[in-house]
């Protein structure tokens, strides 16, 4: 798994790429929690996530919970089919705010 964190229009965009699995989810967890601490809305770009397992989903859930406590925004964007299937299986597709694309997400921050 690779990742990239960037700031765009006052929001933090975390782009995950590749397989978020048992091996890489500790890294994903750390990156997501650090992003949430920045006190800015966080969008996770999941367009290039080729696989995510239960441990990866758990990292997303933990980041969402932390953001809610800190009252900062946390949303997913451009979720790949592979990741969407897993979120559906976990019935978390309704729990997370999911934007069609990062651009859509950012436009909502601006407005």
């Amino acid at each position: 798994m690779n990742y990239e964190v960037r700031e765009e229009h006052g929001a933090v965009v975390v782009a995950l790429e590749g397989d978020v699995d048992l091996e890489s989810s500790p890294t994903a967890r750390k990156v997501l929690l650090e992003a949430v601490k920045r006190k800015a809305p966080v969008f996770v770009d999941m367009s290039r996530v080729s696989y995510i397992d239960s441990s990866g989903v758990a990292s997303l859930v933990e980041a969402l919970q932390t953001a809610r406590k800190a009252k900062t925004g946390f949303a997913l964007a451009s979720v790949s089919d592979a990741a969407r299937r897993v979120l559906e299986l976990a019935r978390l597709d309704k729990v997370f705010t999911i934007h069609g694309s990062v651009l859509d997400a950012l436009s909502q921050v601006k407005s």
Partner: peptide, 14 residues
């Protein structure tokens, strides 16, 4: 229990 949204324990459900 899927109504209990917490990290972990999802694998068997999958």
């Amino acid at each position: 229990d899927l109504d209990d949204i917490r990290p972990g324990g999802l694998g068997t459900h999958f």
